[in-house]
């Protein structure tokens, strides 16, 4: 509907000066003067839009979008992979902690067993030593007792002789003269019994 005035105007400008064009424009219907409604520019706009947007679309579809898509894909994979790795490492760490604790418990048990053994051994040794010393002491005691008994009997036998002599001497002093040894001895023996 506004094709005709637009075409008419498109033909006009070369022959009229700027002032005249402005005046003409005021008289024209609005759409004839308004560039977006000027249909004479439509073929050119459509062609160049088709060319630029078409190439733009193809470039994005062939090159840019696959590239961005692959970047995002790689990143998603990488993150998932890293998470898996982290989970695996955590499991490993947990296993290591468990193994360490097991080892520690074993070592503790072993240590207490060794200590117990050492204690028992020491006790047995001490007991044996004590017994040996006791035996020794008993032996010595028996020896000493035997010695004492011997000395005692020896001493007792000496006592008889001393008593005879003393008795003989006392009798000599009291009675005067010589005393019969045999009689004194018999008398002492009789006294001792």
């Amino acid at each position: 509907m506004f094709v005709a005035p637009a075409l008419a105007q498109a033909g006009d400008p070369p022959v009229v000066d700027m002032q005249a064009e402005t005046e003409v424009a005021l008289d024209q219907p609005a759409e004839g003067n308004f560039p977006p409604f000027d249909s004479s520019s439509y073929p050119s706009q459509l062609l160049w839009l088709a060319v630029s947007f078409g190439l733009f679309y193809l470039f994005l579809k062939r090159v840019v979008l696959p590239r961005i898509g692959s970047i995002l894909e790689v990143r998603r994979d990488r993150i998932a992979q890293d998470l898996d790795e982290a989970a695996r490492m955590k499991e490993e760490a947990d296993a290591a902690v468990a193994a360490y604790e097991q080892e520690l418990a074993d070592a503790r048990k072993k240590a207490s067993a060794i200590a117990q053994e050492a204690r028992d051994e020491a006790k047995v040794e001490a007991e044996a030593e004590r017994r040996r010393i006791e035996n020794e002491l008993e032996e010595k005691l028996a020896e000493a007792e035997a010695g004492i008994a011997r000395i005692k009997s020896a001493a007792l036998s000496d006592v008889g002789m001393i008593a005879e002599e003393t008795a003989g001497t006392i009798v000599e002093q009291l009675v005067g003269g010589t005393v019969d040894r045999k009689a004194v001895s018999a008398a002492v023996k009789a006294m001792a019994q």
């Binding site: 520019s41 073929p43 050119s44 706009q45 160049w48």
Partner: peptide, 8 residues
């Protein structure tokens, strides 16, 4: 008219 314009 397929001219290369400022719009193009």
């Amino acid at each position: 008219d397929f001219s290369f314009s400022n719009a193009s």
